[in-house]
Design a protein around this nucleic acid. Structure first.
Lengths: 180, 180
DNA sequence: AACTTTGTACAGAAAAAACTGAACGTACTG
DNA sequence: CAGTACGTTCAGTTTTTTCTGTACAAAGTT
């Protein structure tokens, strides 16, 4: 029984699990595997090393690593002497969680708030118009109610994300369960 | 200027925004559009009506609506007299949010906790073995540390989801911002 | 300045996902 | 019990996404 080999097998299984999990969050398996691999690799890696390790093209490594950087799951590190770019995984998963959802959700929230606000305004103008079919008016009123409800939800979600970014969420749900 | 037409246009734009947003959460545009459409449709709809409204196949409607049901974003309603299944959108987006992430995250959490726990055990057995290369042992120890950190994160995430399901999250981040 | 080395853009190939129509099973209707 | 209406399964097609190799630009080396 070779210890090194066994360690390797365990790692691979865990990496696969991590990848599957990230997949659930809309990240492809390949990118998930790359992250997992970087997470267990104890030194920053170059694109060529990743390519070697995963048996994929350098192009893929380049784009995948950028995706992970955009999500702040990987960072570029600088090392004297080498010309190659070096990357390492963000190790703090609490931070990863915060960054991931802040980035993803904020984008959607502002988009939606803008659309809803604009639409409510337009429909209110419509309902106030004299020359309008009564049926349309009441339909518009219902829509306005729904959009206002949506707006209030987005506003709540925004505050939730605030609590992530400020880390106040950890006052409420402490990292260590024995705290509090 | 036709009011009905204008209302239609506004609705469509908002539905498109909703779809784009859901897309961010890993739901296809089509399914997102279906949800948005149902959200603004003030009566439960049959598969044939959806098919008509969206210009897609009945097969797609059937599978899409099932996806939405699995996420508890749509529910089947029963109406006396009709043989067709009727579906309507869950209107409470706070609830939708809770259900969506509870369902998605729980799946990943338990999968990961299981994998990590098992792997930690295996590696601990490995590190305790006499006949093992010192280098492998220290590598295994590092891995164990990382997996334990991961485990503690998943345990935290589980508690976060608990607070969603119990709605305690609203004590911390109230729905109405003036509350508290 | 010529030559390397490195990362990325881009176009095309391969793989995966979404979508459809036909066929089927079940349950209701007369 | 035959006939019809309905939802779903499944195989095949279309569309989208992922992945690769080549080409190229930028920066470093000699």
């Amino acid at each position: 029984m070779d210890g090194k080999e066994q360690l390797e097998r365990v790692r691979e299984r865990v990496i696969e699990t991590i990848a599957k999990n990230m997949n659930l969050y809309g990240i492809t398996d390949s990118i998930g595997r790359l992250y997992g691999m970087l997470y267990f690799h104890n030194h920053p890696m170059t694109l060529d090393e990743m390519k070697e390790e995963l048996g994929m093209s350098k192009t893929s490594m380049s784009t995948s690593v950028r995706t992970l950087m955009d999500l702040k799951m990987v960072e570029k590190v600088w090392k004297k002497g080498t010309r190659k770019d070096l990357y390492q995984a963000e190790e703090d998963w609490y931070q990863t969680f915060i960054d991931f959802f802040s980035i993803k959700w904020r984008a959607g929230i502002s988009m939606n708030i803008a659309a809803m606000t604009k639409s409510i305004l337009e429909l209110e103008r419509l309902t106030n118009s004299e020359e309008i079919d009564e049926e349309v008016r009441s339909a518009a009123k219902i829509d306005i109610t729904k959009m206002k409800a949506a707006l209030s939800y987005y506003e709540w979600l925004n505050r939730l994300v605030d609590s992530f970014e400020s880390e106040e969420i950890f006052d409420f749900i402490p990292k260590n369960k024995d705290e509090l």
